[in-house]
Design a protein around this nucleic acid. Structure first.
Length: 217
DNA sequence: TTGTGTATGTTGGGCCATGG
DNA sequence: CCATGGCCCAACATACACAA
């Protein structure tokens, strides 16, 4: 199997995921920071705390107005709360320059927008691309550790660099928003179910197409 | 057998320092 | 320039010891 066949292949197994990253764009931006090194269940608890304390609208503006300490208290369930409170504050300060208007943000060319997001302390490549893809509707490919592991196992492609992997996918697939959103979600779901650190090849629906699984025999 | 307590392992980005 | 490892934190899963 080739990298360009992965989408069709995963879709055959898992079907359409629908809206894989839940919530309003504002919540997705917050979630992108909160989900660093933690599972989604804990992140959604933290977001619920924020919504309960701040209400549903203008959540970014209201969150920015909170002290770092208060913010940390609310996002506690997401883990690393002191660190993430600082990172979230930094990101919210960046958004304030756009008056928290996501449409204004969206009107910035993607490359420039990505660069300025990466200048925010606490926003790395994965976080920036997640925001671009799921909150701002930009067709950029999101790479994570699951993507790296899947590439290595399925295709024996051993790339370390984030941008290398991003470029590989972006050259194999046309820049289609729905496709990119769906494909990243499919990769994560598959890696979480079967292609875990200690892979469950015997149960894996892709074992016939997988370099690693076929090597076991 | 079922419950409870304790310990230990696993998960996961980004920053920063350090060593090639 | 690039890779590696420590650091930030909590939840959950698993395993095991022991008691009732």
């Amino acid at each position: 199997m080739k990298v360009s066949d992965l989408y069709t292949c995963l879709k055959k197994v898992y079907g359409f995921l629908g809206k894989w990253w839940p919530g309003l764009p504002e919540e997705i931006i917050i979630g992108a920071v909160l989900t660093q090194n933690t599972n989604w269940k804990n992140v959604s608890r933290a977001i619920e705390n924020l919504k309960k304390a701040l209400g549903e609208n203008d959540i970014l503006r209201k969150a920015e107005a909170l002290s770092t300490e208060k913010l940390a208290e609310l996002i506690r369930p997401a883990g690393f709360f002191n660190l993430k409170a600082k990172r979230l504050k930094a990101l919210l300060a960046f958004l304030k320059a756009y008056d928290f208007d996501l449409n204004r943000l969206k009107s910035v060319p993607t490359d420039a927008l990505r660069k300025s997001l990466l200048e925010v302390k606490g926003v790395g490549k994965e976080t920036a691309d997640s925001i671009l893809l799921y909150a701002l509707d930009k067709p950029v490919f999101v790479v994570d550790s699951y993507t790296k592991r899947l590439l290595k196992r399925l295709f024996n492609i051993d790339l370390q660099g984030y941008d290398e992997i991003k470029n590989l996918f972006e050259s194999e697939y046309p820049p289609d928003l729905a496709l990119y959103q769906e494909l990243h979600g499919l990769i994560v779901e598959h890696a979480k179910r079967y292609c875990v650190k200690r892979p469950k090849c015997d149960e894996c629906p892709l074992q016939e197409n997988c370099y690693y699984a076929s090597q076991l025999k």
